[in-house]
Design a protein around this nucleic acid. Structure first.
Length: 392
RNA sequence: GGCUCCGUAGCUUAGCAGGUAGAGCGCACGGCUGUUAACCGUGAGGCCGGCAGUUCAAGUCUGCCCGGAGCCG
């Protein structure tokens, strides 16, 4: 792996990440392919969209089809037919989303959640050894330790793999957050030493900074993790409402090295643009495909997209039923050139599979295209202007 | 013509030892930040076919009428 920062502008950095035979231009958006597939899209779509890199998941792929199966195919690229670099997440986040997150019914941003979660919703428990999971398919028990996570990720064969971490909930107090962070640090060390011994495929290993909502802990975690011999860093954990940028600000002094920084699980259009201003290089997020399947369509600023409407329309709304105009008249993706709002509204109402395909394709095109614009802006010293155009 | 069922939200329907109605779907709107998600949530829709009667009280009992289904002639 090699990483070069080509240019900096207003905190944003333009970079080049070399992974095996692939070169990735950063900042880059990393679409989520949890189960080695972007929901709704094929490898052909992924190539057409010029997606540079994807992220898959250790917990999910280990349950199905199993890491051994993927290894037998010769790694995730050959298995999936997707000839792109991959990352794999360690399974640490599932310890949260299937564990405390499921019990508390909250996201890592502590949004209000209306449905009442029950204790039975939890199928993951963390202790010092690792994470005790139950399968989402048959409830069978699976233990994920730092070594096991490395071993699985080695078999899956992604270009970038992540150390096992603990994501504490935003409601966690200082003590709970500290314990999670310290566990993350111990596990980081274990992952690193195991990885050094076993890494046969030249996979890069990223360590994850935790520390939740507390400045002291975030700084400590950044110091500890960045001093370990990782190839790059992930920023994970809870941020609380409207606290993410402040947190990224705390971390900046520790992230000035020539190593790539990945912001885990972020984000919205607004979050992406702002985070790039804090020096983040790559991001993964389920948002474009997840909201797409629910009928949310991203629209460009020229079409009325703004912070207030989260740069999106809900195509299932009744007002679009008779609307013959393009999905987004200012988007030049093939879906927008072809289909009207009214037709897409109909596809969603009729629950046609193509609705999910069109929405996912368009929303990802939108993200990839935004990243291209951002890279160009940084290159031309116009990142500030871009921010003004998009964020107002 | 006789007999037997049935008629509750837009649709399919639950309720019936009588105490003024629920559900699923649909519809409207909202939510989702390292995907247990083609998901989840909220809301608007019903004078329970009509008219009488019994009763303190009727979607629930009785009679007649209207509409529908089936069987027998």
């Amino acid at each position: 792996m090699g990483f070069r920062i080509l240019k900096k502008n207003k905190g944003a950095r333009l970079g080049e990440l070399k992974l095996g035979g692939y070169t990735i231009q950063t900042p880059a958006f990393v679409p989520v392919a949890t189960k080695a597939a972007i929901k709704g899209l094929t490898a052909f779509d992924i190539e057409e969209l010029a997606i540079q890199i994807l992220i898959a998941n250790t917990y999910h792929l280990n349950l199905r089809p199993g890491a051994d199966v993927i290894e037998e195919f010769g790694g995730i690229q050959k298995f999936s037919g997707i000839d792109k670099p991959f990352m794999t997440d360690s399974g640490g986040f599932q310890a949260f989303s299937l564990g405390k997150g499921a019990i508390l019914g909250r996201s890592k941003f502590e949004y209000e959640v209306e449905n009442k979660p029950t204790k039975e919703a939890s199928i993951a428990k963390i202790n010092d050894e690792g994470v005790k999971f139950r399968s989402i398919y048959d409830k069978s028990e699976h233990i994920l330790t730092p070594e096991k996570s490395m071993e699985i990720q080695h078999k899956i064969g992604a270009n970038i793999i992540f150390a096992l971490d603990e994501c504490t909930p935003p409601s966690a107090d200082y003590e709970e957050t500290k314990q999670g962070m310290e566990r993350t640090h111990r596990w980081a060390k274990e992952c690193l030493s195991f990885h050094k011994k076993q890494n046969k495929n030249n996979q890069a290993l990223f360590g994850i900074i935790q520390g939740g909502l507390f400045k002291e802990l975030r700084e400590e975690s950044a110091k500890v993790i960045t001093n370990m011999a990782f190839d790059g860093f992930g920023i994970g954990g809870s941020f609380g409402r409207n606290q993410m940028y402040e947190t990224l600000g705390w971390l900046q002094p520790f992230l000035s090295k020539e190593k790539p920084v990945h912001l885990l699980g972020i984000g919205t259009i607004e979050d992406l643009i702002n985070s790039i201003g804090y020096g983040m290089d790559t991001f993964d997020c389920v948002s474009p495909t997840m909201i797409g399947r629910a009928g949310y369509i991203h629209i460009r600023p020229e079409s009325g997209g703004n912070k207030g409407n989260k740069y999106r329309i809900r195509i299932t709304n009744a007002k679009f039923r008779n609307d013959p105009s393009p999905i987004d008249k200012n988007c030049d993706c093939k879906m927008c050139k072809r289909y009207s709002k009214g037709y897409l509204n109909h596809l969603f109402k009729a629950r046609e599979f193509s609705a999910y395909v069109i929405a996912s394709y368009h929303n990802l095109y939108y993200m990839i295209n935004l990243m291209r614009e951002i890279r160009k802006a940084i290159e031309n010293n116009r990142f500030k202007e871009l921010k003004e155009k998009w964020l107002g």
